[in-house]
């Protein structure tokens, strides 16, 4: 069977095709792609999704070397995300479903991330401890099967990726600052400088707003005018350590408390080398398999949406075309995440 998936929840437009267990195409529209089809378009734009989605599908079909009539199931991200952006991909998928007379599966973007480790050759084993870390989300989950997801904790303020971007801004790095912080941190060796890790009421929750503020105070108090490059690197290093320690310590607590067989860290921040290495070490310590998707599956992509659509389809879930887009993580109905612990 051939599965098509579409992602358009935020900045990225993406189309993927999976045949049985083989990923035939996973295209994420780049700025270059945008300029090929109608000039420079703002990154964040429903119109950009609209202009790009049809040529992107054509290119994906070409890469997969199939015709549109061979597609058996069509999935698209239904939420959470920007409503205008979501509606482009979702409506496009519904239109295809109607015209091809093939089932349509609305997919939760977060669920896409959660199971993105299954896109790798070495797959997670249930029950898995799952950490979703991206620009918009920080969630710690216990995943017992494809349909049993329990939330252990979440951020009570900023997402981990957002903290990276905002500290990047404080260090005068261009948005998004995340990858550049990692680069800077690499040029610093050991440092005395440390930033505090916030305590939270729920032991599995995260908080990064205080860390962000303490980096800001450190900069204001010590470098009111300009930060020397070596100090920038030192701050980046200490900040990255603080985020890594926060993520690791919550996960370690969860490993001790719950029966799990594997750990999977997913989302854009999972591409951070330091975080990756720390989790591999953590896995070794507790003898748990660690699966971190390769970078192309960490950022927003349609491959994970297609895979999740495939899982739901194979589990027998069917949806009507009246399923709507939902902007917020809490306001959806078909999501199998049990948001209570």
């Amino acid at each position: 069977m051939i599965f098509l998936g579409i992602e358009s929840s935020c900045d990225e437009t993406s189309v993927a095709i999976i045949s049985d267990n083989i990923l035939l195409a996973n295209l994420v529209a780049s700025q270059q792609f945008h300029s090929n089809y109608g000039g420079v378009i703002p990154e964040l734009s429903s119109r950009a999704h609209l202009q790009i989605i049809s040529p992107l599908l054509k290119q994906a079909l070409q890469e997969a070397n199939i015709s549109i009539n061979q597609i058996d199931v069509i999935s698209a991200t239904a939420g959470p995300g920007l409503i205008g952006a979501l509606l482009v991909g979702l409506s496009f998928a519904k239109g295809l479903s109607l015209s091809l007379n093939k089932p349509f599966i609305p997919v939760n973007h977060i669920e896409g991330h959660i199971f993105s480790g299954f896109l790798m050759d070495e797959k997670p084993i249930f029950p898995m401890l799952n950490l979703v870390v991206s620009g918009g989300h920080t969630l710690l989950l216990l995943v017992k099967s494809e349909t049993e997801i329990y939330k252990l904790g979440t951020t009570i303020d900023d997402a981990a990726g957002e903290a990276f971007d905002k500290v990047g801004k404080m260090l005068n790095l261009e948005y998004p600052g995340g990858p550049k912080i990692q680069f800077l941190a690499n040029s610093s060796s050991k440092t005395e400088l440390t930033f505090p890790i916030a305590k939270t009421k729920n032991e599995f929750d995260f908080s990064f707003s205080g860390l962000k503020t303490s980096v800001l105070r450190h900069i204001q108090n010590n470098f009111p005018n300009q930060i020397p490059d070596d100090k920038k690197a030192e701050i980046a290093f200490a900040f990255q350590e603080a985020v890594t320690n926060a993520l690791i310590s919550k996960c370690e607590k969860a490993i001790k408390q719950f029966e799990i067989n594997s750990i999977s860290v997913v989302g854009g921040v999972a591409a951070n080398q330091r975080i990756k290495e720390s989790f591999i070490k953590l896995g070794k310590k507790y003898d748990k398999k660690v699966v971190i998707p390769s970078p192309e599956f960490c950022g927003d992509n349609a491959a994970m949406i297609t895979l999740r659509g495939k899982q739901l389809f194979e589990k027998g879930f069917r949806f009507s075309l009246s399923e709507n887009a939902f902007p917020s993580i809490h306001s959806n109905h078909f999501l199998r995440i049990n948001y209570e612990k």
Binding site: C10, L44, P80, G81, L82, S134, G135, G136, T154, T155, I156, D157, D158, A159, G161, E162, D165, K166, S209, P327, S328, H330, S331
Partner: peptide, 15 residues
């Protein structure tokens, strides 16, 4: 009780 930062999402909706 579930307000989080909308920096990445641009807009959050709360019921």
């Amino acid at each position: 009780n579930d307000v989080t930062s909308p920096t990445f999402s641009i807009v959050n909706e709360y019921d």
